[in-house]
């Protein structure tokens, strides 16, 4: 019963959301049908859902890795935007000769994400600044830098949109990606597989290695962990650094796998949606795959609800997401609560 909790929560949440549609003079069954089918109407639609899933897996990881070490990391949004600009810049200037250039681009972008996140770690280590405050401020600084850099240094001369040059054609190798071709040139790319691989590798690292153990130990009790000679420096570097790399992968997914350029405002707040994804999965790295897919379907269904119904607008989909997150999250509490009470009675 306890294991089925999130599924029951999900069903209750969707049911509640559909009932809410009655208030807007919409047929709840129709709403349900749109929600269930919108992600799979065509291969193209499904590809887009998988693209959102990819981004949400990475941003979910960017939140949940530091969470394992007890850090509330909400700086993914800024890191995503920053690393996307870096990727677009590198794709524009790096000389292309071999596949080594592609590797270099990925590594340097990941490094950019790492450094952006590492600012948070450094300030926490040497100035005892709280990570939440630093991260939220850094979000603005990084996106301000991205906007400035795009408009003043890298603006695409062929467009009035605030966007960078396209990356060089040889870097657009994912255009003929097998996933992209299969899904009718949708936004999805092989980064989807990378995302899944990341989840599995991280899950193994967490469960089977010493570092994983140390991070979890630090997360549950930093004081005790320090006693055990686990250094703050190491834990913060690994957890926030990896989070930065995951954020950078969202940027790469967009720039190398989707639009081949950086567009200001490309992210529908992946960084913050990632928090919901991680919380839904209770910070389980494998669970993130499922919860990211769920959130992606909802995000995709959002725009279709607007199109398919008379009175519902895109704002309704936000309400819907909130209800579903709320009911899934509270289902854990509900079932755990009863469980604990029984133990006490015994």
């Amino acid at each position: 019963m306890k294991k089925a909790a999130p599924i029951i929560g999900l069903i209750v949440g969707i049911a509640l959301a559909c009932l809410l549609a009655l208030f807007f003079r919409e047929n709840p069954l129709h709403v349900l049908k749109v929600l269930l089918t919108s992600s799979y109407n065509s291969k193209f639609d499904f590809g887009l859902t998988l693209f959102y899933t990819t981004c949400l897996i990475f941003s979910g990881l960017a939140f949940s890795i530091p969470m394992k070490a007890g850090l509330f990391h909400i700086g993914a949004e800024g890191q995503i935007i920053f690393s996307a600009v870096v990727a677009a810049y590198l794709g524009h200037v790096l000389p292309f000769d071999t596949s080594f250039s592609i590797l270099l681009l990925c590594v340097l972008t990941a490094l950019a994400g790492f450094l952006a996140a590492y600012v948070i770690a450094l300030l926490k280590l040497y100035r005892q600044a709280h990570e939440v405050v630093v991260a939220i401020m850094l979000n603005f600084i990084l996106s301000a830098f991205a906007t400035w850099f795009t408009i003043n240094r890298l603006q695409n001369p062929n467009s009035q949109n605030p966007e960078t040059h396209l990356i060089q054609p040889s870097f657009q190798f994912l255009n003929n990606d097998f996933l992209k071709v299969y899904f009718e040139q949708s936004a999805v790319s092989s980064f989807f597989l990378v995302a899944i691989l990341f989840c599995i590798v991280l899950f193994i690292l967490e469960q089977k290695t010493l570092w994983g153990l140390q991070i979890r130990a630090y997360g549950s009790n930093p004081l005790a962990a320090r006693r055990l000679q686990i250094s703050d420096f190491k834990i913060l570097t690994i957890s926030l650094g990896l989070a930065g790399v995951c954020s950078a992968l969202v940027g790469l997914t967009e720039v190398l796998g989707n639009t081949f350029q950086f567009k200001i405002g490309f992210s529908p707040q992946y960084g913050f949606l990632g928090i919901a994804v991680a919380l839904l999965a209770r910070n389980n790295f494998l669970g993130i795959i499922a919860s990211a897919f769920l959130m992606a379907s909802l995000h995709k269904g959002a725009s279709d609800l607007d199109l398919e119904t008379k009175f519902l607008t895109r704002d309704f989909s936000l309400i819907l997401q909130a209800i579903i997150i709320f009911s899934v999250a509270s289902s854990y509490y509900f079932f755990n609560y009863r469980f604990k009470k029984k133990v006490k009675l015994d």
């Binding site: 567009k263 529908p268 995000h299 959002a302 725009s303 279709d304 199109l307």
Partner: peptide, 19 residues
């Protein structure tokens, strides 16, 4: 007339396609 509001850049293409 049917109007829709975009949620993000990727949804734009989907909306136009669906119409």
């Amino acid at each position: 007339l049917k109007y829709v509001e975009a949620t993000d850049n990727n949804s734009l293409e989907v909306l136009h396609r669906n119409f």
